[in-house]
Write a protein that binds this DNA or RNA. Structure first.
Lengths: 254, 254
DNA sequence: TACCTCCTTCCACTGGGCGGAAGGACTCAG
DNA sequence: CTGAGTCCTTCCGCCCAGTGGAAGGAGGTA
């Protein structure tokens, strides 16, 4: 009976698949984990028990599992995230104060933009990004900025993955995206209008480190009403420049 | 040749051992990882490659490995840490403002106290705790509070693990620790004097949730000179009570 | 009681993981 | 340039750890 054979994934991949099952979910039952990770119940049971023993997952009183403190501890010192957030915070706070809109700081993470920080005023636009969430590169301001300065193979991969059109206005074709990326590289700023959320626009700018590499993006998301206000794009630009400069970037240096 | 046999650990444990190798280190080479995780180089190589593929580890330009953004993303939403920090922050800020000393928020994590938050004024005492760091239960204020309210088996495990004496004043024997824990439970406050760091003392108090369970501790660490000032212990008490009450705890309720 | 869902444990088969060793890549000293 | 040293990467055949279907709980509902 049974035994042997099994699926082709390595054990390590199965272990990670369990972690991935928690994407977008705070709490999962064993069978939900097994389902999301595509594992037989007994295999999931054993591996989840190892996660719990290590402390990477915790079991609540209700028997459900959630991400454990060990993972938080391991990740909270992640060098990129830690350094960027610390350096950027004052600039993001200034930007919030001067615009009273959602302010974001994001880095590229594979084919997504991961939000390192979000500050929000009493804005009218519903926010879909939260710290730690991941949104598509081609349909967000920060995403487009990060995509524009990423190595070319990232763009190839994105095309191969079949970018989704979230709204009628979302650009998903190669030609359109290439044109847009060139424009962003030449102007140093990205504007999206109702491409992910109806009624919202975003303005984003790149953050560079001392070597000149773009390692993050800053954006503001606000109601389309305010699209014409020049101080918003100016503010984003200034914040991105301020952070870059705090990271050691000097414009016009070889 | 070779092959077979090998060490008794499951693959999952080896995967986690690699993560643990990064405790207290930001960056490691492959051979350092192999050494710290007690794995043959070839095994470490394969498993580290799987970590990198998943995104839990990242490889820098220098070839060294560091914790990846994926881990940060997974952990940053850890329910306990996220909720506690958000709720506690204003109280911790008040405490910092009124005392100008190191303010800590910590939870128990196995036999250690993990620091969820630390705010620091221009204090004279060198701080050894940073966010995400883990210090011993029996030699810190927050640790003693967490230990005092933890299930009895935690204390048994601590004794079995052979608690280390960091300073001449550190209490490590069962009798002394039991007496101390009883005192903390009856007064609701813990004081340590030069038990981990010479010249420093700490005052800590428990934070409770709506069910009355102690799930965190707040402390102040300052120079022994200020030991006698009553407003410090009062401030810690008030902060802990404020956070507890924000979490839904109502004192003197059945 | 019968039925359901979800969790936990069991066990015999077998292919994925194992790790020593060989081969590169790179640095440094002479 | 040569040789020694360090560290990383790849190779390959052996064998036991991992596998997963199934059976057995636990708990809830009708």
């Amino acid at each position: 009976m049974a035994g042997g054979g099994g699926d082709r994934r390595s054990v390590a991949r199965k272990v990670f698949a369990i972690a991935d099952a928690f994407t977008g979910r705070e709490e999962l039952s064993l069978s939900e984990i097994a389902g999301r990770a595509n594992l037989p119940l007994s295999t999931a049971h054993r591996l989840v028990a190892e996660w719990v023993e290590w402390g990477g997952l915790e079991r609540g009183d209700d028997g459900n599992y959630r991400v454990g403190v060990r993972v938080w501890r391991l990740g909270v010192r992640q060098p990129t995230a830690m350094r960027l957030r610390r350096v950027a915070m004052p600039y993001l706070e200034d930007l919030l104060e001067s615009t009273h809109e959602h302010v974001h700081l994001a880095i590229r993470d594979g084919l997504g933009a991961t939000y390192l920080e979000r500050l929000s005023g009493p804005a009218a636009v519903p926010a879909i990004s939260d710290i730690g969430s991941r949104l598509p590169l081609h349909a967000t301001g920060v995403g487009l900025v990060l995509l524009s300065y990423a190595p070319p193979e990232v763009f190839e991969e994105l095309l191969a993955s079949g970018p989704r059109a979230y709204q009628p206005g979302t650009i998903t074709d190669e030609r359109g995206l290439r044109r847009r990326m060139a424009e962003i590289r030449s102007t140093g700023i990205a504007t999206t209008v109702e491409e992910l959320t109806p009624g919202a626009f975003s303005i984003a700018a790149p953050v560079r480190d001392a070597t000149g590499e773009v390692l993050a993006a800053v954006s503001i998301v606000a109601h389309v009403e305010r699209l014409a206000e020049p101080q918003i794009s100016l503010g984003v630009r200034m914040a991105a420049r301020g952070i870059s400069s705090a990271l050691g970037y000097r414009a016009h240096v070889d």
